[in-house]
Structures are given as C-alpha cells and as structure tokens.
Amino acid sequence: MIELGQHWEFIAAAYGGAFAIVAALTGWTIVSAIRAKARVSELEAARAARKLQ
C-alpha cells in the first residue's frame, strides 16, 4: 500500500471522484456511440428493403 500521510482520505476522494467521473463520461460516450451505430444500420437496412420493394 502506498503511504499517503495523514490526509490520505482527501487524496483518495480526489482520485476516486476523478476516476468515477472519467469512467461515467467514457461509458456514456461508448454507449451512445454503439446505440447510434445500431440505429443507423437498422434504418439503412430498412431503406435498402424499401428500395427492393
């Protein structure tokens, strides 16, 4: 364990908070990218099917 001195709680909270926000931001970015990609391929497939009709 790294020795962080008497104020270790504040250091842990700062890094923990930074990790949580960065993880949430990254997760949100990835999920919305995947959703948008899935929706666009769904719509493009529907358009291709319409053209075939």
Partner: peptide, 26 residues
C-alpha cells in the same frame, strides 16, 4: 482523453444527424 472523447462524440453526433434524416425519409 479529451481529444479521444471529443472525436468519438463528434462521430456519434454525425451519426445522430444521419439517423434523423433517415427517420424523416422513412
């Protein structure tokens, strides 16, 4: 990290605009 997230979010936003025009066409 900012550059990576910004780039991916820009790509998603362009995809969303494409979704909107495809939905309108549909």
């Amino acid at each position: 990290l900012f550059m990576t997230l910004h780039l991916v979010r820009m790509r998603t936003e362009i995809t969303r605009r494409r979704i909107r025009s495809l939905e309108l066409a549909q």
